[in-house]
Amino acid sequence: MNGYIASVLLVLLGLGVGSLQAASVAKPVCGGTTSYKNINLVVPSSPPRECEYHIGAYSKYVCQLRIDFAMTLAQPTLEKDETTGLSYAECTSDYFEVNGLRLCGVETWQHIYVPFNATDGVSTVDLLLVLANRAGATGLPTPSWDMTVTQLECPAGASVRSLDMEDQAEITIESRASTIKDGFFVAPPGCLQYFPQAKGVVKSFNYNDGAGIYPSRMNYAICFRRVETTSLLTIRSYFFNVGAETSASNFLTDESCYRSGSSNDLDADFLMVPQATLVDSNTHATYFCGATDKDVVIKSNNPGPLLVLFNSDDIYKESEAGFAFTYTVA
């Protein structure tokens, strides 16, 4: 796994986009604290029920953490709402938690961004892994994780940093000299995932080759790098199974993706693509749901930030295995 990440970073170097790999990489154990720029977190041979890592700011210029990770944890649990009697999927047996976000199941090199505004006095971010009791025949998988954490630095005045240090006398973060070469990887504010390369693959959390289920109650932005000449985002979905109000074996859009009678756009499961066009039918749509294993091509030419949004409500339905698509920014 470590070799895979190293290979990706070497490719990026060859493309001239800079490297996130420093000369040394910290490898703290459970309960450890580190303020290195580059950090590798690996499951110990006998993991405790709770494993917490404390990430201290590398410098006052730190604005984000990028966490690339592979992990195998227990699948989301189907819990039942006592009021409605309906089920929802939640990470309760095992989970990885940071900044209020919980993930579980099987991930093969996913990534997330975590705000880390050192300029505003935030000095530590905690990463927590919690495991269920595996004594006896539990049927739970052997837990594993391999995470690469990179502290990204931003210049003063960047939108993901505060302008001024408050109560500087109380802040003990070292003011290291920095040439700040992380700009290519810094995500726009509000993006949980960011893909700076011009092409790649995007998958929902716990996709697991279409065999997983995504957690309920998610609402996040997936962002792409836009340059001055960018005019189009093209998405080619090759797996799509996102809950719809009606039982479906095909791709659905807009009104079909909401529960009838609801005035809340978040009261449904969907992938939202601003100013989108379905290429095959040349029809316009914004919200996408339903189920299909056929290739579906969507193009978006919206101005401003280049992104798609994913939302899952608090009701689990059978058609909630997730999505996988390739993208091209041109």
Rank of each mutant, 00 (worst) to 15 (best):
A89P: 04
N301Q: 12
W145F: 15
T253H: 01
V42W: 01
D267C: 01
V42Q: 07
E97F: 03
A74H: 07
S204D: 07
Y287T: 03
A74L: 10
P44V: 12
D269V: 04
I315K: 03
T229R: 07
A158T: 12
S87L: 13
D68A: 02
T229I: 09
F96S: 00
E153N: 06
A221W: 07
L127S: 03
G3M: 09
D269S: 03
Y95F: 15
Y61I: 04
E174L: 08
G105C: 04
A285H: 09
R225M: 07
T138C: 02
A118Q: 09
N40E: 15
G212V: 10
T253M: 08
I315Y: 05
T229W: 05
N250F: 10
N282H: 12
S204L: 07
Y194C: 02
L15M: 11
P28F: 12
K181M: 11
F310A: 05
G16T: 11
V114D: 05
T142F: 03
E90T: 11
I39R: 00
D120K: 13
D120F: 11
C257A: 03
I39W: 03
C91Q: 09
E320W: 05
F224T: 03
D164S: 13
E82D: 10
S231D: 14
Q151K: 01
T230W: 06
G31N: 04
T246I: 13
L86I: 09
R176G: 05
F251N: 01
T179C: 01
V25W: 02
Y4R: 10
T148Q: 08
A276S: 15
A57W: 06
A291K: 13
V149C: 06
S24C: 02
A321R: 13
Y220V: 08
M272V: 05
Y4T: 15
A132Q: 14
A169E: 15
T292Y: 05
P305E: 12
N99G: 10
V8G: 02
L309F: 09
D314G: 02
S175F: 03
H54N: 14
